[in-house]
Amino acid sequence: MRVKILWLVAIFCLFLVVFAHEFFQKFLFMRPCEQCVYIRLDFLIIALGAFFGTIKFIRFFGGVIAIFGAISGINHSLILNKIHTALHSELPFGVSGCNTEPSFIFNLNLHKIAPSLFMPTGECGSDSPAVPSGANISKMQEFFINLYENGWYLAPKWEFLNMAQCTLIAFITCIVLIFWAFLPKKLVFRAFF
């Protein structure tokens, strides 16, 4: 059961990264910001840690990596939400935390190795589609671009839960599932029965 939970976490995190890149970035022309690419990396770190957690001899090491990724992701989501809230308020002054040159853990040059995934090209808090001039878009693309014209929201029509809030919920869900997967069986059993 615990291994299945870790596989679920790994697949969920990989899905979110691929979906953000392929659907929002490529299909809808939403450019990722600095905090967005950090959040992508955090999801990949969780996926890697969860995968390692399924291997008996390095299970603890995998758990540490996954927890690190989740905590880092929570931090980056909170920063992005603060920026988003400030930019969408009446007084958008004093906003910081978004650079065009990212600084990854261990000084990795991920933005040079995989620029499509890790190069920030957008501004934090501004997550509306930016369709390049002369782009040939399909009717489906046009529908979704119009749907997200005011920014990325889980329910765009009502502007309910922005991207930063949704990633925060996803990271909290991951950390709960990771802890669940690593708790001793006796504690899990006692907690629910």
Rank of each mutant, 00 (worst) to 15 (best):
R2K: 14
A70L: 08
N107M: 05
G73D: 02
E101H: 03
F57N: 14
L161F: 15
A66P: 00
F189M: 07
F43S: 02
W7C: 10
S103F: 01
Y148A: 10
G151N: 10
F189N: 10
Y148S: 10
A135S: 15
L8Y: 11
G125N: 01
E22R: 10
L187R: 09
A135E: 12
F104E: 00
N81E: 10
A155Y: 14
T100I: 08
F144R: 01
A130C: 08
I113F: 00
K56Q: 12
A86K: 07
A70M: 09
P132W: 09
F29D: 06
A130N: 14
I178L: 01
L108M: 12
N75V: 13
L80S: 09
S138Y: 06
H111E: 01
I175Y: 06
F93M: 11
C36A: 10
L108H: 07
W7T: 05
A135W: 07
S72C: 13
H111T: 00
F24W: 07
L161R: 06
G134P: 09
V176K: 03
F51A: 08
N109A: 06
L177E: 01
W152T: 04
L80I: 06
F61C: 05
C13H: 03
I137T: 14
L154T: 13
I105T: 05
M140P: 00
R59N: 06
F182V: 05
I137K: 08
A130E: 14
V9Q: 00
F60S: 11
V9I: 08
N136K: 15
C174I: 04
G94N: 12
G125P: 02
A10T: 07
K112L: 01
K82R: 14
C36K: 02
S126E: 13
W7Y: 15
G53K: 02
G151F: 04
S72W: 11
I83M: 11
W180P: 03
E159F: 04
F19Y: 15
C98G: 12
F27L: 03
A191K: 08
F179Q: 06
P32N: 13
F143E: 10
I79V: 15
M140R: 07
N150F: 10
C13N: 13
C98R: 04
T100V: 07
A70R: 01
K139Q: 11
F93K: 12
N107G: 02
E149L: 13
H88D: 05
T85F: 01
S128A: 12
Y38F: 13
G125I: 00
L108E: 05
Q25L: 00
S116G: 11
C36L: 03
S77M: 08
F193Q: 09
F182L: 05
Y38Q: 09
I169A: 15
V17P: 01
V95K: 12
S138Q: 07
F60T: 10
N99Q: 14
F160M: 11
I169S: 10
A191F: 09
F143M: 12
Q165D: 04
M30W: 12
S89F: 06
E101P: 00
F12K: 05
I83S: 02
N150V: 08
I11T: 13
T100D: 09
Y153K: 04
N107W: 05
I105G: 01
E149T: 15
L154F: 15
F51I: 15
P115H: 03
G62E: 02
L110R: 01
R59C: 03
F15P: 05
A47L: 10
L14T: 05
H21R: 13
